[in-house]
Design a protein around this nucleic acid. Structure first.
Length: 589
DNA sequence: GAGTTTGAAACT
DNA sequence: CAGTTTCAAACTC
């Protein structure tokens, strides 16, 4: 029935759009990490894209073609094959031609160049409607259905668009003649080619009709052909998105926003989800789970589409869409600021389901993550995704408090180690050759005690304050002991930018260099330092192991997460007497 | 592969 | 601008 539709050839797919950004990115990734799986994938895709570019006919067209150019002349070559107007086959060898712009650029420029296309389109639209009334169309479609069996939908190849890789799809339009935004091809500003559509007018042969349809569409919505996804440079790291090929883009949000009601924005019905971006304040969706803080959305965006039903059957987690816009925006802002809305943290239905399928972090203020789906496939998706930022499963369980306690413990352990080794030090100190060193240490301590301005405060772990006297030996003033070179180096690494900026150059130099210690003095301390560091690091390792172990238990048994959450503090503090820990903290204050 | 669901687009 | 209809993709069975 589709007389205008070219007979589908054996090769029905082609690279429609080629984004050099993607190519450059692929090349860069391959160059930097040639053995990296993602780089290999990108290399393959790049090769494929170039190959297709060479083999294929052009698909990218201007929705509003230049009226001065006969599209047939423009598109068709001598042999009838369509020539690539946007990206030449020889683009690898020939310099880019001026007209070789991206589709979006062409569209924008054309819209700009041809303001007459923005003229009222009512009559055009009326004409369009006049040509075939809905009833006629319906009848026509019935006829079509009688004569044309549904062909399998085709999805093949890849295309570069907006720097992402997408599966190229062919539309299956039946009633829209591929001249409305219902048609994906038309909406993308490309001719149908190899599609399964019927009565297609989105082709060269029906250029006039297509142009009118474009005009009508633009009349309704001047931005109809522009990208729906607005880039946002201020997205957080977790907001980075991953497209179907596993490539992470930094796209922002849907310009118009979605309006989903039943899909929780976790299906491809949702345009945001389909674009691998989170829903934003622009959306008017209901019961949205495709937002920051939603593990469901994160996992599903990373490819775990098969568990949608599991989420959907167990209620809402964070119904952004059901909230008033102002509250919704505020919630999003809070999330961006690291605060979690309370309703995210308390969802019994999900937790109930989590007993079987998902992991639930305790509903306390430590975790911003309500639940962690940990299907094997999901884990594989998360961990195996080479480009995604790795986030430990324990990230949702271990919080800042754990980190601080770990720091505190390290300080205590360090103190213990120093105390144990005090005897050895004392022996060394009794050595006559140590007099000079001791004098230096004493001098430094005095520097601290007198709060000389030359001293620089070193902040570490938020609570721990050391003072290093410039130009003297590094000293752990709190314990009147010299810090080991390694510790000092670590502290230098720990120092934040503020410290580095604030301190005098001499201190910076002191951090980068070995402490200026008398050689004989250093010799005596070397073994002690080594022993002290060994004790600290060993204990540090134990702490980490315990954290991992207890965290894993929580992961495996979320139902008892709260109990273990409380209990897991114990292994962390194992080996440390509570009063000692407290004493240490007080001392450090 | 047929039928259903879904939400965007189109229409009123 | 809200409500309804149309449409085609996504999804389910």
């Amino acid at each position: 029935m589709d007389n205008n539709k070219p007979e589908p050839g054996p090769v029905k797919t082609a690279a429609r759009q080629l984004d050099f950004t993607a190519i450059c990115r692929a090349s860069a990734a391959s160059a930097i990490l040639p053995d990296h799986p993602q780089a290999q994938l990108q290399s393959k895709l790049l090769a494929l894209a170039l190959k297709r570019q060479v083999e294929s006919e052009p698909k990218v067209i201007d929705p509003v073609p230049d009226p001065n150019v006969d599209p047939k002349v423009k598109q068709k070559g001598v042999d009838g094959a369509v020539q690539n107007t946007n990206l030449s086959v020889d683009s690898k060898t020939e310099p880019p031609k001026p007209q070789q712009h991206s589709h979006a650029e062409l569209l924008r420029s054309r819209q700009h160049i041809q303001p007459e296309l923005a003229r009222p389109r009512q009559h055009i639209h009326a004409e369009l409607k006049k040509t075939e009334s809905p009833k006629q169309r319906q009848h026509h479609n019935v006829e079509l259905k009688k004569t044309e069996s549904s062909r399998p939908r085709q999805q093949s190849s890849v295309e570069f668009k907006d720097g992402t890789l997408k599966k190229q799809k062919q539309c299956n339009c039946k009633n829209s003649r591929c001249l409305k935004l219902y048609c994906e091809c038309f909406a993308a500003g490309i001719y149908c080619n190899g599609c399964n559509c019927t009565n297609c007018h989105n082709n060269v042969e029906n250029e006039s009709a297509r142009r009118e349809a474009v005009g009508a569409t633009l009349e309704r919505n001047p931005n109809a052909f522009r990208s729906k996804i607005a880039k946002s440079p201020h997205r957080s790291q977790d907001n980075r998105i991953q497209n179907e090929a596993g490539e992470i883009s930094n796209l922002g949000k849907h310009n118009k926003g979605c309006n989903c009601k039943k899909s929780y924005c976790l299906k491809k019905y949702c345009e945001c989800f389909q674009a691998n971006i989170m829903c934003s304040e622009n959306c008017r969706c209901i019961d949205c789970k495709n937002c920051e803080g939603s593990e469901e959305g994160r996992v599903l965006r990373q490819g775990e589409h098969t568990n949608v039903m599991a989420f959907m059957q167990h209620g809402s987690v964070q119904p952004f869409g059901s909230m008033p816009q102002e509250i919704k925006k505020r919630k999003i802002q809070n999330l961006f600021m690291g605060q979690a809305p309370t309703h995210i943290l308390d969802n019994r239905s999900v937790q109930k389901h989590n007993q079987e399928t998902y992991l639930t972090s305790p509903s306390n203020s430590r975790s911003h993550l309500p639940s962690i789906p940990l299907h094997a496939a999901a884990k594989e998706t998360i961990l195996g995704s080479s480009d995604s930022i790795y986030r430990s499963q324990l990230a949702a369980i271990r919080g800042l408090k754990d980190a601080k306690e770990l720091c505190s413990r390290l300080v205590v352990v360090s103190a213990e180690a120093s105390r144990k080794l005090a005897g050895k030090k004392h022996t060394i100190n009794e050595d006559a050759e140590m007099d000079q060193c001791e004098a230096s240490v004493a001098s430094s301590n005095q520097v601290h005690k007198d709060k000389l301005e030359s001293g620089v405060q070193v902040l570490s772990g938020g609570n721990i304050v050391h003072t290093v006297a410039t130009g003297s030996d590094p000293v752990d003033v709190q314990h009147d002991r010299a810090m080991s070179p390694g510790t000092l180096e670590l502290m230098c690494d720990e120092q934040d930018r503020t410290f580095l900026e604030a301190q005098s150059p001499s201190v910076v130099a002191g951090c980068s260099k070995q402490p200026k210690m008398n050689s004989s003095c250093t010799e005596g301390f070397t073994d002690i330092y080594a022993e002290q560091e060994r004790l600290v690091l060993t204990n540090f390792l134990n702490c980490l192991n315990k954290l991992v172990t207890s965290g894993s238990i929580q992961v495996m048994h979320p139902s008892s997460s709260q109990t273990e959450r409380e209990g897991q503090q114990e292994p962390l503090q194992n080996g440390i007497k509570d009063n000692e820990l407290q004493r240490s903290r007080d001392h450090l204050r």
